[in-house]
Design a protein around this nucleic acid. Sequence first.
DNA 1: CTAACTGTACTAGAACGGTTAATACAGTTG
DNA 2: CAACTGTATTAACCGTTCTAGTACAGTTAG
Lengths: 120, 120
Amino acid sequence: MISLNYRDSRPIYEQIKDGLRKLIVTGAMAPDEKLPSVRALATQLSINPNTIQRAYNELEGEGYIYSVPGKGSFASGNMDADAARRKELLTRVRELVTELRYLGVTDEELLAILKEEDKT
Amino acid sequence: MISLNYRDSRPIYEQIKDGLRKLIVTGAMAPDEKLPSVRALATQLSINPNTIQRAYNELEGEGYIYSVPGKGSFASGNMDADAARRKELLTRVRELVTELRYLGVTDEELLAILKEEDKT
DNA sequence: CTAACTGTACTAGAACGGTTAATACAGTTG
DNA sequence: CAACTGTATTAACCGTTCTAGTACAGTTAG
């Protein structure tokens, strides 16, 4: 479900956040679908439950999931979170495009990426 | 010449690397142009020379600059480094585009970014 | 009701990376 | 020679990440 890369300098809880966010945002996880429990996911990934709790906690703060004590944590169909994520990603794309232009990448190459992704 | 953001969680030496790389890649710094000395830049930014040294050291490893003991460090007109950077940035763009598509961003919006950047 | 699950909270400490600090050495330049 | 340059090494500090251990309260199935 989630894979960790220990060579990556990024914190584990960030990797978990990104992994879960992608699952939710891509619809691989339906709204109100139950996430693995803090302890279950911790066991599965062989890490400390606190690390999972931190990831879940932050994801809840960002609106991607909601947690019910005693029941579990669930994917949220929150569109505000999506909007924020969109805005964030778009600014990053802008930055990348600017640098790529400086590196001599042509519009054709950039357009090719869009078309290429169409087929995915 | 370079500005640091201490609120940013990214390491200082990474910020310096990015800043210098941008200067070189955009041509703001000509090939074989002399960079500020390790000590000079450290003083200017009010940080430790070791941090600058690390940034320079890694930039040299990536081919963006070359250093001559006793003389100084200089921008390199190395195109291999540019190619590597291009490849890296392009894969990141691909990832971003994929997620943006899932988030419901249309091709029109993505194309708009390219046109928007044209005017820059 | 009980047992086993759930999220949540808190404290403590280990481990790691970033940064600073203080030197030292060798080559270059005026 | 004096003042610059890059380079190297060692130690220490500090903040963050992560682990560890424990506890409490709500939920759910038997």
